[in-house]
């Protein structure tokens, strides 16, 4: 086992440990812990965990998607508008359509980046304006709704915590694991690690980029849809999309994905979302102003990246 692999494992271990400690802390604050509380936990992290996973795929591939929050907000608005007053079957069909829309938007962003040669950050910054605009157009005011049966399919009838857990784990099993093993998965790490070497190794860099943004869009679509299922409404606001984007980057980075690309996985970001969720809720329980949790989340993200960076520097120095 080499240093880098060892370090990656220890990073994951630290994340698991931190999530565990915070979890126990949170549980100890509660008068009791059962299925109801577990459901609250899973529902609390589900949208942001999915978004972090989508962001992670793009960052591993050497990009960054500052529009991912806007993608989720748009799907949230679309689904809350058109899934209101529908039958269950219609809802399911629409859900699939909207997830595909998310993929399509992602693919489009990826295509623009690939064709124009403009930096990811610029393209996604601009598209984030655009998508929030569309979202506001779809839902000028917060509101909308969703078929109750469909909502139960997402969030589970109280206190059933299994459905949201499935929504969290299924994408990892059905999307991430096959992706990791596929040629596309290797290409993803390859273009993130070194575009030139990837090109020389026969990777179609542009096509890979488009596919990764499409998968990122798929996760953003899932996230938006799940949000509708949980909140039964939509929020067409730019600041929500910006916060979601920030959290997705924080989650991916906290979850062990290197911003320089080529390193990381999806389980870390999912766990990181748990950590990002526990911090404010624990503080709230102490009656502390929730604004402090924003300070802590910000500081934690900085600290984590700093720590990771210093670790990397030290091992690189030894080489």
């Amino acid at each position: 086992m080499n240093v880098i692999q060892l370090k990656r494992q220890s990073w994951n271990l630290a994340i698991i440990l931190l999530a565990l400690v915070l979890g126990i802390w949170r549980i100890s604050q509660l008068p009791q812990f059962g299925a109801y509380e577990a459901r609250t936990f899973v529902l609390g992290i589900l949208p942001i965990a999915l978004l972090s996973m989508g962001q992670a795929i793009i960052i591993i591939g050497g990009g960054i998607n500052l529009a991912i929050g806007a993608e989720a907000v748009l799907i949230n608005c679309l689904s809350a508008r058109y899934m209101q007053d529908t039958t269950f079957t219609e809802s399911v069909v629409l859900a699939i359509v909207f997830i595909l829309v998310g993929m399509l938007i992602g693919a489009l962003i990826g295509w623009i980046i690939a064709v124009s040669g403009i930096a990811d950050i610029v393209v996604t910054l601009a598209t984030s304006f655009l998508l929030v605009g569309v979202a506001m157009y779809v839902m000028p005011q917060p509101g909308g709704g969703v078929n109750q049966q469909f909502a139960d399919l997402v969030s589970g009838k109280v206190p059933n915590f299994i459905p949201p857990l499935i929504w969290l784990i299924l994408p990892i099993i059905l999307i991430w694991i096959p992706l990791y093993r596929s040629k596309l998965g290797i290409s993803m790490y390859a273009i993130g690690s070194s575009k030139e070497a990837a090109f020389l190794s026969g990777v179609n860099v542009k096509l890979t980029k488009i596919k990764l943004y499409a998968i990122g869009g798929l996760f953003a679509g899932l996230s938006g849809l799940v949000l509708t299922g949980i909140t039964l409404s939509s929020s067409p606001f730019a600041n929500i999309s910006n916060t979601a984007t920030l959290n997705s980057v924080a989650g991916a980075v906290l979850g062990g994905v290197a911003l320089s690309g080529g390193v990381g996985g999806l389980v870390g970001p999912a766990l990181a979302a748990l950590i990002l969720f526990f911090i404010p809720t624990i503080l709230l329980a102490y009656g502390i102003d929730p604004a402090y949790s924003q300070i802590i989340t910000g500081a934690l993200t900085i600290f984590v990246v700093l720590f990771g960076g210093l670790l990397r520097k030290r091992t690189a120095g030894k080489k």
Binding site: I64, I121, L246, V249, A250, V253, L259, D289, A291, Y292, S293, Q294, I295, I296, T297, G298, A299, T301, I302, V305, L306, G309, L310, K313
Partner: peptide, 23 residues
């Protein structure tokens, strides 16, 4: 000095400042 990624550093700083001023 510490080699932080500027995107993350300033995003984090942004969150911290929002918190600080809200408080």
């Amino acid at each position: 000095l510490l080699g932080m990624n500027p995107l993350i550093m300033t995003l984090g700083m942004n969150a911290v400042l929002i918190g600080v001023f809200t408080v």
